[in-house]
């Protein structure tokens, strides 16, 4: 044990917990009786039909294998591969998210540069920020009319606030010494913004972007359950309507893994711009 590094020991423990957890889960699900073992009476009363129940992990793995071996099939509106559904969700999240970044970062920059603007905009931001993004949905559907665009709008509105606030906060908090360095080197406002303020505020801005992508991924599932049609959120709801809990559990896991990957991507970016003082 003593020869293993901290990370190796942690990984070993993780695997152990996973195995134990799966075994408990597997053991906790009562096996369904095979049809041959039923009495004639039971068969007549319908007990032979498969009962809906939480599936054991073995079934989920079988489902995962089946789905992941052919993720992009398309057999009509209610039967598309998991890859296609995830693709739709990611497309919506990224579209809404980058539109939000396009507005939030430059705007946050300007707010952060001016104390007056910071104070003037703050009350509006504080009121709009805690609104559940889904509360915008009816209004979005009415004004925009298109369910696809409305889902993107909901992503946009939920990811804009953390980026806006963090950008403004990061820019406002840039050390005056560094700004003075720019001033004594006669840098113009644009040059100062890009060579001093942006790199100085970048870690805070990236933190905001990372929070936003997390929220956006949380919200897309709920939004797609509402608007329907395509996407991982719709998939979950559709499988619930089919009472296919195996698919529901499988898609829950997929949502988690994709969310983790999105976060990890921003984690890498964040580490790249972080500096030690």
């Amino acid at each position: 044990m003593g020869t293993l590094s901290l990370n190796q020991r942690a990984a070993l423990l993780s695997v152990l917990m996973l195995v134990v957890g799966l075994l408990i889960w597997e053991a906790a699900i009562p096996a369904q009786k095979a049809v041959e073992e039923l009495t004639e009476y039971e068969i007549l009363t319908g007990a032979g039909a498969p009962k809906a129940g939480v599936p054991p992990p073995s079934q989920v793995f079988a489902k995962a294998w089946e789905q992941l071996s052919n993720p992009f099939y398309d057999a009509g509106p209610n039967d598309k591969g998991i890859g296609i559904q995830i693709g739709y969700s990611i497309y919506r999240v990224l579209t809404g998210y980058f539109l939000a970044a396009l507005i939030a970062i430059p705007f946050g920059f300007l707010i952060g540069m001016s104390q007056v603007a910071y104070k003037a905009f703050n009350p509006f931001i504080q009121v709009l920020r805690p609104i559940s993004p889904l509360a915008w949905m009816p209004l979005a559907l009415f004004i925009i009319g298109d369910s696809e665009a409305s889902a993107i709008f909901v992503i946009f509105i939920c990811s804009i606030w953390p980026m806006l606030i963090n950008t403004a906060f990061g820019v406002a908090g840039v050390r005056e010494d560094w700004v003075n360095v720019a001033r004594t080197h006669e840098l113009g406002p644009i040059k100062t913004a890009f060579t001093v303020i942006l790199p100085a505020a970048a870690p805070t801005i990236l933190t905001g972007m990372r929070i936003s992508i997390g929220i956006a991924w949380l919200v897309i599932v709920a939004a797609e359950m509402l608007v329907g049609g395509t996407g991982i959120g719709y998939y979950v709801w559709n499988e619930w309507n089919n009472l296919d809990l195996t698919s529901v559990v499988f898609s829950i896991l997929v949502i988690g893994v994709v969310g983790m990957l999105l976060d990890a991507m921003f984690g890498v970016l964040q580490r790249r711009v972080t500096y030690a003082e």
Binding site: D177, W178, N180, V181, T184, V196, P199, A200, A202, V273
Partner: peptide
């Protein structure tokens, strides 16, 4: 034309 060396160095840490 007027260079400054500040007490806290004021180097850009990134």
């Amino acid at each position: 034309d007027r260079g400054v060396v500040f007490q806290n160095y004021s180097l850009l840490p990134w």
